[in-house]
């Protein structure tokens, strides 16, 4: 009964939630990624972040898209219009130097994929919705 209540409570919380984006690199290699988002009334992937470098076993946490402006910043002076907490995460792009794998929604066509990382190993890049948050996992 308590579990059911808990589940119901979590479910009720979901619609009003403003999602955080977490990136978790459990691979053996440093990765370079960009994130894509859009303002509340904008178009998918209209906002493109600068490249961020995440070491092996490193993480990144963004409470909302507004925080991207501080680090790593948006490309070409882009800014979130309106309430940054109402902006929406669209995708994550992984770059291995020669090719790009984009996972997510909006401008991405897949939520998971495998690509060679900079160390030459197969890297899984996976976009999932975890409760109220979006989680991107990179792992060998």
């Amino acid at each position: 009964m308590r579990k059911l209540f808990t589940a119901a409570l979590l479910f009720l919380l979901a619609p009003a939630a403003r999602a955080a984006l977490f990136i978790n690199n459990t691979s053996k290699c440093t990765v370079q990624v960009r994130v894509y988002a859009h303002s509340e009334k904008g178009k998918a992937c209209e906002l493109e972040s600068k490249i961020m470098t995440i070491p092996s076993m490193g993480t990144m946490a963004f409470n909302n898209a507004g925080q991207v402006a501080e680090n790593p910043g948006w490309e070409k002076g882009m800014t979130v219009a309106g309430d940054p907490k109402a902006a929406v995460w669209d995708a994550l792009g992984f770059h291995n130097g020669t090719s790009t794998l984009k996972v997510g929604t909006g401008c991405a066509t897949v939520t998971t994929g495998v690509v060679k990382d900079a160390c030459g190993a197969d890297l899984n890049v996976k976009w999932t919705i975890a409760g109220r948050n979006i989680l991107v996992e990179l792992y060998n």
Binding site: R18, F22, T26, T59, A61, L135, E137, Y139
Partner: peptide, 14 residues
């Protein structure tokens, strides 16, 4: 264990 995922993610939305 190879793709072991056991990170902790904390969000303060208050």
């Amino acid at each position: 264990a190879i793709g072991a995922k056991a990170a902790l993610f904390i969000t303060n939305n208050t």
